[in-house]
Amino acid sequence: MTMLTIDNLVKTYAGEASRRAKSRSGTDRTAVANAAPARVFAVNDVSLEVGDGEMFTLLGPSGCGKTTTLRSVAGLERPDSGRIAVGERILFDGDGSRTTNVPANQRGLGMVFQSYAIWPHMTVFDNVAFPLQVRKRSARPGKREIQERVAKVLETMELGHLADRQATKLSGGQQQRLALARAIVIEPPLMLLDEPLSNLDAKLRESLRYELKRLQRELGITSIYVTHDQIEALALSTTIAVMKEGNVLQTGRPREVYERPNCRFVAEFIGTSNFLRGTVASREGDLVDVDTDAGRIRLESPVRVPVGEEVIAAVRPECFEISRTGWGNRPNEWSGTVTNRAFLGDAVDHIVRVGQGSIRVRGNPAISIEPGTEVHLATDPAKVTLVPVG
């Protein structure tokens, strides 16, 4: 069942040139008023479907349009055009003769901000109870039901023992859990989370990732999660949509997006990749041989590319094996020289000179090979991705 549908969503803003011109005086300002203003696409014809119970993540760098998309769903931004529906309920429709735009306070969605946005003058209990207490009288639960619902949510968030404490006297992690509790207590059909862990230190952020995943699985709340953190997206998500410059480049399961990126940007943004540029030497079914500066590499790809076409073969560093002695007759086995290495704690990176290029290899921290050592590399054809040039 589809919980959220976004169709052809567009949101633009005035470009830099227009804003600068509008600040001028006299004839310049008049000329600008008569000219069509330049527009910048924050969200450019985005269409998405989010299934019931999913943790759907919008992932991308700053300025890619992920937060604008989320705020459009929340009702905090008014799109130029498109359609947004939660279940059968239309929240925004800007393509008909009459625009539908349900106000943010009537959408009934849960929202968790990056800055927590808790009320400092209230206790933990009162912060969570407030969204229920300010509902219209006809929809407001009774005092006993509010007490029970707030107590249940606080216990779920492991904040029950802090119900009477002032919100400002909580730690950063506790404040973020409080913000989550306040969003959950209204039992929303859809939860919107705008980089909720970015203000926490690395260790706390990691522990809260697992807490969020546990809560989302146990409560079954459909959630839209915005982040620029690739590890966070891979750890939390049911589905990831990678965005760049207002466009969705790829949507899929975390493993699919990581292992089979459909373009160079996705391969570079999620993790690290070796990009081996070359030309297709031969093809037999899904097996493709590509001649690169590092040597010939074989890969498996359903993408039909003609012999002689220029392509890029992408290989994650952890998909290479490294050995001082080699293996013999493997399809993607090369010899090279270690030029550098770096100990990363849970892995060791080796930079290996192969042919005219360099390849990054990430492996077991117990294996550390000195620079200048002759080594052999190998990778499985199934672990090599064909990426379009450009």
Rank of each mutant, 00 (worst) to 15 (best):
H121K: 03
A38K: 07
V86W: 12
K143H: 14
P61Q: 02
G82N: 09
A42I: 00
G108F: 07
S97I: 11
V73R: 02
S72A: 15
H121N: 05
N101L: 12
A74M: 06
P120I: 05
V102C: 03
D93E: 11
N105R: 06
T69I: 03
V134C: 14
I90F: 08
M122V: 03
P131I: 03
E88K: 14
G65V: 13
V128H: 13
A129N: 10
T100Y: 05
L70W: 05
G60P: 01
I118F: 05
E54G: 11
A38P: 08
S72L: 10
R71F: 06
R39K: 13
C64R: 01
R39S: 13
H121W: 00
G53D: 09
G51D: 11
M111Q: 05
S138I: 13
K66D: 03
R107S: 04
E88S: 11
R89T: 12
R137F: 09
R140V: 13
T57P: 04
R137C: 08
G82M: 03
G53M: 04
L59S: 00
T100W: 01
V50P: 14
S47A: 10
S138R: 15
L59G: 00
A74S: 15
F113K: 12
G94T: 01
A38Q: 08
E88N: 15
Y116C: 01
R78Q: 12
A104F: 01
C64G: 06
V43M: 06
R39W: 14
F125Q: 10
A151P: 00
S115M: 05
E88M: 06
V112H: 06
Q133F: 03
E148S: 12
F113T: 10
D80G: 02
A74T: 05
C64S: 15
M55S: 10
S138M: 02
Q147V: 11
S81K: 11
S138C: 08
G75M: 11
T69M: 07
E49I: 10
P37L: 10
I90N: 05
P79G: 05
A36Y: 02
G110V: 00
C64F: 00
F92E: 07
Q114E: 11
V73G: 07
G96M: 04
Y116M: 08
C64N: 00
G108W: 02
W119T: 10
E148M: 11
D126Y: 09
L91W: 01
R78S: 12
R107M: 04
V124I: 10
F92Y: 15
G53L: 06
L109I: 07
R144T: 12
R83G: 05
G82K: 02
Y116A: 03
N44E: 03
T123K: 13
T67F: 02
P131Q: 04
V112P: 01
L76K: 09
T123I: 03
R39V: 09
P37I: 14
R144D: 12
F56C: 01
L59W: 05
D126R: 07
